[in-house]
């Protein structure tokens, strides 16, 4: 029982990071029906922002988190403006290739600046409690609560504010809604800013939990978060959160109760089976294609 609780805690920690990154994929897809494959690398840039701010300016956790989120948010908006906007009318595959290119560019630039893996200073006190045999650290609590908090905030923004309403309207129809006076470009920029800053927050927390970072760290995590978004139903914000927790949970539990070599094999087989029964993901709805 203690063992299951301990592993569930591990699953929650991993799942909340997957969920935060998955949100970035799903938001961009929801509004542009485009998969931003550079998102995993923006997560990596977030981790490096954390490293730079914490190492050279020696700021505490909260300012570091905010600076990283704002910095990467601006970077996300810039990338959209420079690389994706000119291709908005182009075939969708061009935009996807551009996104892959932007991702490789980010990795390569980071590789020039930091060719070696870097150690991120710990910004949170290393406190652990043992409650009834289950060991829990302050870091785990902060990661889980902060992720949930950010997700609730996002949910609130999307469902209860004007910007959120505009986002949902544009994701419903990109040609008519702007005619009604909704500033299309501004809303898309806001979506990128929100999505990428959540990715950056995940990067900061990830670099605190796993404090050795390198320019390729975003690739594998990015893929897994993308899969989470698809499993949850890409385009659906709550779906991305659920997908993240499901993938984190499945990965940890497979490693916990089967030989750990089977982890990815079993985890991804389960996800494939799930998609066979729910091809649009858990919360995804089939959208009628307008011809």
């Amino acid at each position: 029982m203690i063992y299951i609780l301990q592993q569930s805690l591990n699953a929650l920690q991993l799942g909340s990071i997957y969920a935060l990154i998955a949100l970035g994929y799903t938001m961009v897809y929801g509004i542009l029906t485009m998969i931003n494959f550079a998102h995993g690398d923006l997560f990596m840039v977030g981790a490096f922002f954390c490293f730079i701010v914490a190492t050279f300016f020696k700021l505490p956790f909260i300012p570091t988190l905010l600076i990283s989120m704002i910095g990467v948010g601006l970077l996300g908006v810039t990338i959209e403006r420079v690389a994706y906007r000119p291709l908005r009318q182009a075939p969708r595959v061009s935009a996807v290739i551009t996104a892959l290119g932007v991702g490789i560019l980010l990795e390569s630039v980071m590789l020039v600046i930091y060719p070696y893996p870097q150690s991120v200073p710990t910004l949170l006190p290393n406190i652990t409690w043992t409650i009834g045999g289950v060991t829990i650290s302050l870091l785990q609590i902060i990661i889980i609560l902060l992720s949930l908090g950010l997700m609730l905030l996002l949910d609130f923004i999307v469902r209860r504010t004007m910007v959120g309403m505009a986002m949902r309207a544009i994701s419903w129809d990109k040609s008519v809604v702007p005619l009604l006076g909704v500033p299309l470009n501004l809303v898309i920029s806001a979506t990128f800013a929100l999505g990428t800053s959540l990715g950056a927050a995940a990067g900061v927390m990830y670099s605190q939990a796993f404090p050795v970072i390198d320019p390729y760290m975003g690739v594998l995590i990015g893929w897994k978060a993308f899969i989470s978004a698809v499993v949850g139903g890409i385009g659906n914000i709550r779906g991305a959160m659920i997908g993240g927790f499901i993938l984190g949970g499945v990965e940890i539990m497979v490693a916990a109760f089967m030989p750990s070599t089977y982890r990815d094999f079993v985890a991804f087989t389960l996800l494939l089976i799930l998609l066979i029964f729910r091809p649009y993901g858990i919360l995804g709805q089939p959208r009628p294609q307008k011809v």
Binding site: Y3, Q7, A11, Q13, V219, I252, R263
Partner: peptide, 18 residues
């Protein structure tokens, strides 16, 4: 216990080891 190159989260395996 095992993992694959690039993994950063070893908590599941380490909990098992513990």
């Amino acid at each position: 216990e095992t993992y694959t190159t690039g993994d950063k989260d070893f908590t599941a395996q380490l909990t098992k080891i513990k």
